[in-house]
Amino acid sequence: MNPLKAVKRWFIDPQFARKKQFLRSLDIFKDLRDRELGYLVQSLHSRTYRPGEVVFMAGDIGRALFVLETGSVELVLPASGDGSRAKFQLKPGDFFGEMALLESLPRTATASATEKTHLHLLYKSKLDALLAAEPRIGVSIMSHLARLLSSRLRRVNADLKPVFAKND
């Protein structure tokens, strides 16, 4: 084996490298450089949830973005007028609760793990600290969130078009 590679392997943290690799694969963090991903990994907290464990409930004040690494999470919206509850199943690589990074507002859905699930949490104040120390990281994440918000608004506008047309 190349001795240089052996020394490098002895110094490099494989778990840290794996986390960085995972984050790089996500759309929201894909524009970040290697060192920036390193800072981001340090800003994340991780937690493993048991099957059925509630991550947060609708109405809880949101303060963190959740990134799903393994397992699955179900998002359940509060019952609508006809009593039905919309459900969304999230898979590894998905993220949710992202609007908490913009405003500390009540969550609009209940999130719970449907199997053993490993989540990474990016807390709002950690992102704020990153914005101050490493503005490129914050700008990249915020610009992605802005695009996401804009596309959702367009979708809502499109969904509401028939309603507006009927009222006119």
Binding site: H45, V54, Y123
Partner: peptide, 15 residues
């Protein structure tokens, strides 16, 4: 510590 914290209060604990 975060793992031990009840899941509903993880966000508050990290805050």
């Amino acid at each position: 510590g975060i793992q031990l914290c009840p899941s509903r209060f993880v966000e508050q604990a990290i805050h």
